[in-house]
């Protein structure tokens, strides 16, 4: 038995003899695996570089102002004092408006598509809603400036303030110029709508048919079936979708920059202009003169990064949970 070189010569049928070789190196396969691994490692590396870049750029501002950077509401480039509280406040307020408006619409359209719509309607409606995600932020901003703002200024804001009499409350007081947290929140609602509806639809379609049939067999109406059998089953997935939408809303830049009015103020009124973290960076980057000003902007970027990382991490975990338990159930 000679295994040394693993080669022998045989005559194969009427063909010329061909060496029977079973040795060989697997070096090419190993190189291939290395290359793929290297590509895959680019992703953690990219995240690491992001953290380093933001840390390097934002560090001077954080060192100068400490924790007060996040809580101070003074942003004065002339005096060299920077506090990001108004931007953080504006980010939170606009995102909440966006979610309040987009959640019922997004989940509603997803339920409509998964449980009510006839087959022929399903595809086109889903397509139209998904298409919202394909429109660039800057185009939303353009449309917002020339269509949404005039509508808000002349119709919706007076209606909310005067006709409904909400002007007496702090949320709708003050003059209605148009550019405002309300405008930014509404455009954000449209922008996150496709994300919420897409994920909700995916989760709702994953709810087994047996769940629905069991509810109907008990004599439930369609709505009772949805409320009692479908939504509980898909709940954490839908919440994951909403949080994912929140992640989008927090970081949206262009459309918000064009509609929010860009003012460093903390105002309870939704009709007042404000700032979000992303719009602050985008708007002041070009005119930042001093190194500290630049660093303050990057520190805002770092804050935004950390917040969206956390929000996305939670959302992915929730969606992933549904995928696991959902498929495991009978």
């Amino acid at each position: 038995m000679s295994e040394g070189d693993g080669a022998a010569v045989i005559a194969n049928g009427d063909d010329a003899p061909r060496p029977l070789r079973i040795v060989g190196s697997a070096i090419a396969d190993r190189v291939y695996t290395w290359v793929l691994t290297a590509f895959a490692l680019c992703i953690p590396a990219l995240l690491l570089l992001l953290v380093i870049a933001l840390g390097l750029a934002g560090w001077p501002a954080f060192r100068r102002f400490g924790f007060a950077f996040l809580t101070s509401s003074t942003w004065n480039p002339v005096a060299g004092i920077y506090g990001a509280a108004p931007a953080i406040y504006g980010t939170v307020v606009t995102s909440i408006i966006a979610l309040i408006v987009a959640t019922p619409l997004g989940v509603g359209v997803a339920l409509f598509l998964s449980d009510l719509a006839p087959r022929r309607v399903r595809q086109p409606v889903a397509f139209l809603v998904d298409l919202l995600a394909a429109i660039p932020s800057v185009v939303y901003g353009l449309w917002g400036i020339f269509v949404l703002l005039p509508f808000l200024r002349e119709t919706l804001m007076p209606f909310l303030r005067d006709t409904l009499g909400l002007g007496g409350t702090v949320f709708f007081s003050g003059p209605a110029y148009g550019p405002s947290m309300l405008a930014a929140g509404l455009i954000l609602a449209v922008m996150v709508l496709p994300y919420i509806s897409a994920i909700s639809r995916e989760v709702l379609l994953a709810v087994p048919r047996s769940q629905r049939e069991a509810a109907l067999a008990l004599g439930a109406t369609r709505w009772e079936m949805i409320r009692g059998a479908v939504i509980p089953y898909a709940k954490s997935g839908i919440i994951g979708g909403i949080i994912l939408g929140l992640g989008r809303a927090l970081g949206e830049t262009m459309a918000v920059t064009m509609l929010i009015g860009n003012r460093h103020e903390i105002s309870a009124s939704l009709l007042a202009p404000g700032y979000t973290m992303a719009s602050l960076i985008a708007n002041e980057f070009a005119e930042a003169s001093s190194d500290l000003h630049l660093s303050a902007l990057m520190a805002v970027g770092l804050t935004l990064f950390v917040i969206t990382m956390i929000v996305n991490g939670i959302a992915r975990w929730l969606v992933w949970q549904v995928g696991r338990t959902g498929s495991g159930r009978p």
């Binding site: 295994e3 022998a8 029977l20 079973i22 060989g24």
Partner: peptide, 17 residues
């Protein structure tokens, strides 16, 4: 092999490919 040489395909030197 045809010449009588026997090769263990699970030998260390053998390459599955």
């Amino acid at each position: 092999a045809r010449d009588g040489k026997a090769l263990d395909i699970y030998a260390k030197s053998a390459n599955p490919i």
